[in-house]
Amino acid sequence: MFYEKNNELSKNQTSSPSSSSVSKRVYTVEEIIEILGVSKTTAYNLVNSGSFHCVKVGGHYRISKKSFDKWLDDIDETINDCQVCE
């Protein structure tokens, strides 16, 4: 489910002609909400949990795509060890 949504978001990304050779390196909180299908509160709890690398730029969080994708991949291995639900 997560992977399909992630792939769908990647396909739907529109890029300007000048940035067509640059791949997306960060997600927004809104994209995390869409990928995971969680509430805004849960998404911000995840961002603040330190589970993956993120920075705040101009009042908005930017989440490292590489870090988030690795975290998401690792969930499959530890599906019963939810870091946010504890």
Rank of each mutant, 00 (worst) to 15 (best):
I63W: 03
D73S: 11
H53A: 12
K56C: 15
C82L: 07
S23I: 12
K66W: 03
C85H: 01
K5V: 09
F68M: 07
C82E: 10
Y61F: 15
S39N: 08
S16E: 11
V22M: 10
L72H: 08
H60D: 09
P17I: 03
V84T: 13
R25I: 08
I79W: 10
F52N: 01
K11R: 14
N80C: 03
G37C: 07
G58V: 08
F52L: 02
A43K: 03
S39Y: 01
L9M: 15
R25M: 11
K11A: 12
I32P: 00
W71F: 14
V55P: 03
Q13E: 14
I75W: 01
A43N: 01
E8F: 04
E8C: 04
S18R: 08
F52M: 02
K70H: 10
K66S: 12
K24D: 07
L36D: 03
I63V: 15
E30M: 01
W71A: 03
D73A: 11
V38S: 05
T14F: 12
D69I: 07
R25E: 14
S39R: 09
F52D: 01
I63N: 07
Y3F: 14
L72P: 00
F68E: 01
Q13W: 09
C54Y: 06
T28N: 05
C85A: 02
T14H: 09
R25Y: 01
C54N: 15
M1H: 10
F2S: 08
D81V: 09
R25L: 12
D81Q: 09
V47R: 04
K11E: 13
V38F: 02
E34H: 01
I79H: 11
Q13I: 15
V84N: 05
S18N: 07
C54D: 08
Q13L: 14
S39G: 15
S10H: 11
S10Q: 12
I63P: 06
I75E: 03
E31W: 04
K70D: 11
I35H: 00
T42M: 07
S21D: 13
S23T: 12
S15N: 10
D74Q: 15
K65T: 04
K24Q: 13
V22T: 13
T41C: 00
G58A: 05
N12D: 05
F2G: 15
F68A: 13
G50R: 05
F68R: 03
K11M: 11
A43C: 00
W71S: 05
Q83W: 05
Y27W: 07
W71M: 05
D74Y: 11
N80I: 06
S19C: 10
E31V: 06
N45T: 13
D76A: 09
S21H: 14
T14Y: 10
R62W: 03
E34R: 07
G58M: 09
I35G: 02
K40D: 10
I79E: 13
V55R: 15
V29I: 14
S67L: 04
